Each structure stands twice: as C-alpha cells, then as structure tokens.
Simulated assay, not measured.
Amino acid sequence: MTQFNEQLTQELFEKNLITENQFQEVKEYRNLNIFSLNVELKLFLSISVLMFTSGIGILIYDNINSIGHIALLTILFMVTCGCFYYCFKNSKGFQKTETTSESPFLEYIVLTANVLTCIFIGYLQFQYKAFGTHYGLATLIPTIVSFGCAYYFDNKSVLTIAVTGLAAYVGLSVTPQDIFNGNNDFYENQSLSYSAVFLGMVLILWTIYSFKINLKTHFALVYLTFALHIISVASITNMLNEEITWLLFTLILAGSSVYFYKVSYQQKSISLYVFMIIYAFIGINIFLFQIFKHVDFNDLWELFFLLLPPYFIISIVMFIKLIKNFNREIAK
C-alpha cells in the first residue's frame, strides 16, 4: 500500500498537479509513519457506552429487591441528569448545519444520556405504570427526547435510537432478530405492512423537506437507510401473499427501488445501492415465482434446473459489474 501511494504521488508530481515543495512535504510526512487511532478510539468509546448502560441494567436487575425501586430510579435519574448537564454545558447549541464538538467525549455522553433516559422511562412504566395502559407513551416520550437531542447535539447515533423508537411506536420491531423471529408479522397483518410503508414514505418526505430548508442534511443517510429497509421488507413479505395485494406491493417495491437507485447516486452511498440491488433482486425472483406458478412445468423441469446455475452466475457477475460501475461513477 505504501509503495502504491508513493507511485500515485509521483504521478501527481510528474503531471504538475502538485509542486516540488508539496511533493517533498508529502514524502517527509509519510516517512514519519504516523497513523491514526481515531477509529479504534471511537470503537472503544462506543463499547464503553454499551458496557456502562448494560451495567446499569444489570445493577437494577441484581439489586432490585435489596436497594429498592425508588432508590434505583433516583440514582438512574441523577446519572441521566449529570450526563445531560455535561452535554448542554459543552455543546455549541442548535445549528441547522453539521457541527463539530470541541469535546471528543460529547457525542458519547449524549448517547449515554439518551440510552439512560430510555431505561429510566421504561423502568418507570414497568414498575409503576406511570402512563397507565398507554404503553405507547413510554415509547413516544423517549423517541421525542431522542429526536430533540439528535438535532440539538447533532448526533447520528441518537437519531438512530429516535427512528427506532418511532418505528416501535407504530408497531414495528426493526432489529434483524425480531424480523426473523416473526415479531413483524407482515404476512398475517397487512395493516402493519401499510404502516411500515407509510412510515418509510414519511422518512423519505422528511429527508426531502430537510434538504429544502437546509436542516441537518447530513442526517439524510440515516433516514433513507431506515426507509429502504422498512419499505423493502414489508413489500417483499407481502409479495409472497396469495391475495391480489401482492401486485400492489410489487409496484411499491419497484417504485422504491427506482427511487433509491437515484438517491444512492445523489448521496454517493454504496450501502443504499447494495441493499437496493439485493431487495430488487429478491423482489424480481418473487415476482417471477408468482407468475410462473400458474404455468405448467411438467415438461420443462429439466430445462428449468439447467437454467438455474447460469441464472445465478449471471446475477452474481451483474451484481459485481453494477458495484464497480457505481464506484466509478461516484468517483468522478
């Protein structure tokens, strides 16, 4: 890799794209062998937040009888308030554009404060039924707090919590484990499917509106990622339905794929592009299955199985070519 970088630098110098002084400065800098620990430190900070909040949960579980609910809630409330005090004291305040903090720990303290808020409200509702039978409020309030903190402190991690809470409020579980466990029963409950599609469209519309008013436009990728997965999973699940509504969800998936194809180029997001292709490929195969199941294949089974290997090989080759073409286009 070092030799490759040196060759690139040499080419830039030979093409007169950089001066001789710049060329020498680059060489001297590379000879220092300095490397960044930024990613590693952020990873450890994220793990520390996870371990701290998990420790709070374990503390509550193990000492719930000896310490008492009131004492635990008081401790939890004080720690949460302390985190928020630090956040407000060290933040630059709300700004419409992307902001950077002078404190390297602020982002993670904000995340900790929001996770503790969710724990506090959840514990309060579970133990004392603070919101009565209105269980949605126990989800909605932390969601509102998370949205507020995400925009005020410019924190994408907290925004992820907020969107997840919003999805939970409308009756969705957006973790992969819940999807495969069948908690999101789109197949049996079509109203849930429509809610999922509606939520995805709301996230897309909010992203478009945010660009118009120039409000935290760098949050777009978070919203679009959630929208892509929610709409696509709901559509694909309902395309397996025996009822005629599978055609409607086929059109929804097709429209979603076209939109995210365009927006992935606009955002220069390889993740959106890859998942869009995967969901579209699954949708195309389900569509073909729904069409061909009405065809009599008694005399064509051998041909069908002969065509399967080339079909998947061609699909893989096309997938690789699409990814390469995407990377080439966004690099321009």
Rank of each mutant, 00 (worst) to 15 (best):
G283H: 10
C83A: 12
F326A: 03
F326P: 06
Y259F: 11
T97R: 13
W246T: 04
H134S: 14
L322R: 14
D299S: 12
Y108K: 07
I121H: 00
T133G: 15
S193E: 03
E242P: 02
I323R: 10
G182F: 07
F180V: 15
F287M: 13
A234G: 04
K89S: 06
I141V: 14
Y273F: 15
G122W: 04
T175Q: 07
S269G: 01
P104C: 05
M239D: 07
F319N: 04
I236V: 13
L224F: 07
L322I: 01
Y311W: 08
L17T: 00
I70N: 12
F326L: 07
I231K: 01
Y259E: 06
N325G: 13
Q95G: 12
T112W: 00
L32A: 09
N114F: 02
N298Y: 08
Y61C: 04
I277Q: 13
L137V: 15
F312S: 01
I64T: 14
I323Y: 13
L59V: 07
E188L: 08
L215H: 06
I58N: 09
L224S: 01
F219K: 04
F260K: 02
F52Q: 02
T139G: 06
Q10Y: 12
Y61H: 11
Y86K: 01
T100N: 14
I244R: 04
I179M: 09
L17I: 01
I282V: 15
C87N: 12
S36P: 08
A220I: 07
H294G: 10
V258C: 09
V202A: 03
Q290E: 15
E107S: 12
T9H: 06
S191R: 11
A280N: 08
L308E: 10
V258H: 06
A167Y: 01
V158K: 05
E329R: 15
V163P: 07
I204V: 12
F287Y: 14
I320A: 10
T164I: 05
I284M: 15
K156N: 08
Q127T: 15
V39F: 15
S146E: 01
S264R: 04
S54T: 15
R30H: 11
Y259H: 00
F52E: 01
A130H: 02
D62H: 11
K96G: 15
L12W: 08
Q127A: 13
Q290C: 11
Q266N: 06
T139F: 03
I56C: 13
N184I: 00
M318Y: 12
S235V: 02
I252M: 00
F13H: 09
F88Y: 11
K262A: 08
I277P: 09
F77T: 15
I213L: 08
M276T: 14
I109C: 05
Y135M: 10
Y151G: 00
K15Y: 04
I320C: 09
F84Q: 06
